[in-house]
Design a protein around this nucleic acid. Structure first.
Lengths: 238, 238
DNA sequence: GGCCGTCAATGACGGCGCTCAAGGTTCCAA
DNA sequence: TTGGAACCTTGAGCGCCGTCATTGACGGCC
């Protein structure tokens, strides 16, 4: 993942002052896997801005590698991260001619973009798009439950469960992997904005989980999962 | 809308004890407008259950007339309404073979359902589906902001703005219409579960809006909008 | 090494919204 | 008209989480 790091650094600060901007035009024209539509691949550094809410939405994007977040801002500066995306996820969809949210990388990322109008003319691509979108809708539903109905501790526990690879009957070997350290590529502020909390509350929730023994905080962005079932029980979902 | 009212009444109470159930098979086989796929039309009474979270998801649905809500339950009974749907909206999508949420009518409703596998084979239909889904994703993003970052008063104000037909430069005639009474087909409990609040807090927010003079509560489910801009300013979005 | 900037953890305190309880409305049926 | 059920409103009290401020850890830079 390290080799994906940089290619161009952004020019200006984003509206909310969080991150550098990369507004360079896409780089590598590539043929879509299906051979139907021409996609363009771009590498982004960590914390690069891919587009801003309100930018014209004439291309759609797919994460190839790395992580991307979508967020929206209120006029007074409050921010809500509305989606966390990984490899295979699609973003940049909008029913209006402009994007409804901003997109920013959480890690060095490789992204493919496609011309929107071309995508909408390709049945094959639409079918793939359809499948991607459905899983994203389910994720959004799940997230609405988290934001609307869960306590701070439940939110943070649910967040950590995202990083546990298997949710079902782990074999011993799997369990070993699950106990491995999870690297959070997000700052406390980003986590807080995703979970609808403040950084302080996120921090306190992490401390509480540590106090209860279910996790150990190795470094700031490295969490060791000691007790998967323990965390799972705290999510409120099970 | 009154003539759509009933056709069959449900047999049992739903899991959460909110509503009667309608699990009757679809009624009127109709040809899709595009002549490609056979859809089946069903009329539902108000507060009818269309499907439950966990039911097999082998059909997808489209609202023709009336209103439908999608909700999810936590094991301890907490409920979150994740989507409010009106004419044209599609639901029943899931990336798993079962539904990720339950669907219930908020008013008498006319719904068309299509066989899922057939839909996914029809390019024409996929294109339509794609457009519908994109606007729903934007709505889910907007709702995440509401749930994660808005105060109770802002949430209720935002909720009311859904019912204001025009958001832009109303002519005098439009403004007259906008000042007309809005009928909420939702109970306070349903509104609360949609906004991530309790009924008491929703009630207090309505009272606060009344105290400020921006609305009048005519009957329990009829709200007169006195001052659109006033409400709009309280949403936090503008 | 010393300085500073960034980020996280923690404590004190206050307020928003939840809980619990009581009373009021609305509406239907007898 | 009256009783009752369902729903809504309002108040009192409290707890979770936000706000504000301090401290500490870490890393870059001169």
């Amino acid at each position: 993942m390290k080799q994906l790091v940089e290619e161009r650094q952004g020019e200006t600060a984003s509206r909310c002052g969080h991150t550098p901007v990369l507004h360079a035009p896409p780089v590598l024209p590539v043929q879509d896997v299906d051979g139907e539509i021409e996609g363009q691949r771009v590498r982004f550094v960590q914390h690069a801005l891919i587009f801003l809410e309100g930018d014209p939405a004439d291309r759609i994007f797919q994460v190839v590698d790395g992580a991307v977040m979508l967020y929206k801002l209120l006029p007074d500066g409050r921010r809500q991260v509305v989606e966390l995306l990984g490899p295979g996820d699609i973003f940049g969809l909008s029913f209006k001619p402009v994007h409804d949210s901003s997109a920013e990388t959480l890690s060095p990322a490789l992204v493919t973009s496609y011309e929107r109008s071309a995508v909408e003319r390709s049945p094959h691509f639409l079918a793939r798009l359809n499948r991607c979108v459905q899983s994203q809708i389910c994720a959004l539903h799940e997230h609405a439950v988290l934001l609307g109905r869960k306590s701070a501790l439940e939110r943070v526990a649910s967040f950590l469960m995202r990083f546990v690879p298997l949710h079902t009957c782990p074999t011993h070997q799997d369990r070993e992997q699950m106990l491995a350290t999870v690297r959070l590529t997000m700052t406390r502020q980003e986590i807080a904005d995703y979970l609808g909390l403040t950084i302080e509350t996120v921090s306190r929730a992490f401390s509480e989980l540590r106090r209860r023994g279910v996790v150990s905080i190795e470094k700031q962005d490295e969490v060791k999962i000691n007790h998967v079932c323990g965390i799972c029980r705290l999510t409120g979902t099970h």
